[in-house]
């Protein structure tokens, strides 16, 4: 009997429109409360839906979707897509009102200089001592960006620097306890949401992706690596001397060739590290701690690594960052530019920025000078003289305009709905990014996964959501009308067992949810 897996994904979406953000967020949730069958949580604007997922406004003021608990990467991608379909439909209703237009983006970083990053957090249930995870998992997290990177630009660079994974610029350490500041490659949060003794690995170094294959591979390979660590069959000898430095090196290398120092032994490329994990996984295919979909993942994993080794541009219709790299290379060529010429100009801008603000080297200060049109030309002359930069003001201005154009393209790539660049390319039939088993998305908009507490949660909300007053969190569902509770602390629960609330519990629940006395 194969081991069950459980995984989930939380995605933060950037919101933009011509009405105030607070109004747009409130209207989005008002539409959701009106149009979607749901159970509310203890917080305002926080809904559990009949497909088992959760839609809420998160700290920082953005909509966030959490998938239900899924048992395979195919199921996970299906519910991410179902969630995005739900959001797109809500946007259509909002934008019909003509009060204003609102858009949502799968964005990972902002390009305004504000330093914002939108998270895409992965969860994996496991039974390993959490202290064993970082050393064994970090080399995977550092190197998987060769297929799981969203692609884009380094948001903290003053020029134009392509990155396989823009969120890497916002990571500051190998291991962290924080999720909003000092983010780490490995996050130590361990809120199991299970009464069975498992732990929940919570990763925040990943990115929101458009390619189904990239999203599926990331979930599948990471699940297998976690299972190998649990079974003590993970590869040895791939610890890195400086994981964060290695991740930044890999993110800046679209050729996927650069090597970084290992903790011991010869230097390693991202592909070499991934090969080690893949070979170890292939040796575990018959093991009971591996899920029954491990074969599919290893087959696709091997195929993608082979194509990356041959020529990453072969994946320009399949994975996020190679798609973007191909599109942006084309934009450069149309202007008679190359990545090399862009790189030289970006290097000059970095030098000028350092000269301008040697004490703080803050991006904001740099942007302020450049946007002050009257003084910018003069400031640039002074700076370029100081740094012996051969770039004239006119060339700089054209470069910065092109930079804005690329950033615009980058943000619009992941826009939800028919206007998004990725969606347009997909509808045009020029992409080949499908992943094994990812189908039934339309059904997943209303139906929960087939097993586990996600099914019980979703079925109950569908059955009672219109007639009973329901409250929910990941481990409980309360029927306030019937004064009873469904205990869902076992994520693999298969039957719904209602329990009547005692008078004491009822008082406590009433207080918790601040319900009206008339209930």
């Amino acid at each position: 009997v194969k081991s069950p897996c459980l995984l989930g994904l939380e995605t933060e979406y950037a919101i933009f429109g011509d009405r105030p953000r607070g109004n747009a967020l409130a209207e989005l949730m008002r539409q959701a409360e009106f149009r979607l069958r749901h159970a509310t949580s203890a917080r305002r604007r926080d809904l559990f839906l009949q497909n088992g997922s959760r839609l809420y406004l998160d700290t920082g003021g953005h909509p966030e979707l959490a998938t239900p608990e899924c048992t395979s990467p195919s199921e996970l991608v299906r519910y991410v897509l179902a969630g995005e379909s739900i959001l797109s439909e809500l946007l259509q209703f909002m934008n019909r009102s003509r009060i204003g237009s609102t858009r949502l983006y799968r964005a990972n970083v902002d390009y305004s200089g504000a330093g914002t990053s939108w998270g895409c957090h992965e969860s994996y249930l496991h039974r390993t001592d959490p202290s064993r995870l970082p050393d064994s998992l970090i080399p995977h997290l550092v190197s998987r960006i060769v297929y799981a990177g969203a692609g884009g630009f380094d948001p903290l660079a003053p020029g134009i620097e392509f990155s396989l994974s823009p969120r890497v610029a916002h990571l500051q350490r190998a291991i962290s306890t924080d999720s909003t500041y000092n983010r780490g490659i490995f996050h130590t949060k361990n809120e199991p949401l299970s009464s069975r003794g498992e732990h929940r690995l919570h990763l925040l170094c990943g990115e929101s992706l458009c390619s189904h294959l990239a999203s599926w591979l990331r979930a599948g390979t990471t699940s297998l690596v976690v299972a190998m660590i649990e079974g003590r069959r993970h590869p040895r000898g791939i610890a890195l001397k400086d994981p964060l430095g290695a991740m930044k090196t890999f993110a800046a290398d679209p050729d996927c060739r650069r090597e970084v120092p290992a903790a011991s032994g010869p230097p390693l490329s991202a592909l070499a590290i991934q090969r080690k994990y893949l070979e170890a996984a292939e040796a575990c295919l018959e093991e009971s701690f591996f899920p029954d979909w491990a074969d599919d993942v290893c087959r696709e994993w091997r195929a993608v690594l082979a194509r990356l080794e041959s020529d990453p541009s072969e994946l320009a219709t399949s994975l996020d960052w190679p798609m973007k790299r191909a599109l942006y290379t084309r934009r450069l060529e149309l202007r008679g530019l190359t990545w090399e010429s862009i790189s030289r100009t970006s290097g000059l801008l970095s030098a000028a920025r350092r000269a301008m603000d040697p004490l703080t080297d803050r991006f904001k200060a740099w942007e302020t000078v450049l946007r002050c049109q009257d003084g910018a030309s003069f400031a640039w002359q002074r700076l370029s003289s100081h740094t012996r930069c051969p770039l004239g003001w006119d060339e700089l201005e054209a470069f910065l305009q092109f930079r804005l154009e690329l950033f615009e393209t980058e943000i619009r790539f992941g826009e939800l709905g028919p206007d998004g660049l990725f969606t347009q390319l997909d509808l045009a039939g020029v992409l080949s990014h499908s992943a094994p088993g990812v189908s039934g998305v339309a059904r997943a908009v209303s139906d929960p996964p087939a097993t586990g507490r996600a099914k019980i949660r979703g079925d109950t909300i569908r059955e009672l959501g219109a007639t009973a007053e329901l409250r929910c969190d990941w481990m409980h569902l309360w029927d306030l009308t019937g004064r009873r509770v469904l205990e869902l602390s076992d994520p693999f629960a298969s039957t719904a067992s209602w329990r009547t609330l005692s008078e004491c519990e009822w008082e406590s629940i009433r207080g918790r949810f601040d319900i009206l006395a008339s209930l």
């Binding site: 933009f16 914002t116 999720s179 393209t409 206007d419 660049l421 347009q424 020029v430």
Partner: peptide, 30 residues
């Protein structure tokens, strides 16, 4: 793919009328 990409990008950039969303979407993340 590249031709389709050009068409889509040009369409998006012309819609924006010079007001780029790319450098104004900034708040709300974490």
């Amino acid at each position: 793919m590249l031709e389709a990409g050009d068409r889509a990008i040009n369409r998006v950039l012309s819609q924006d009328n010079g007001t780029f969303v790319g450098t104004t979407v900034q708040s709300g993340g974490q």
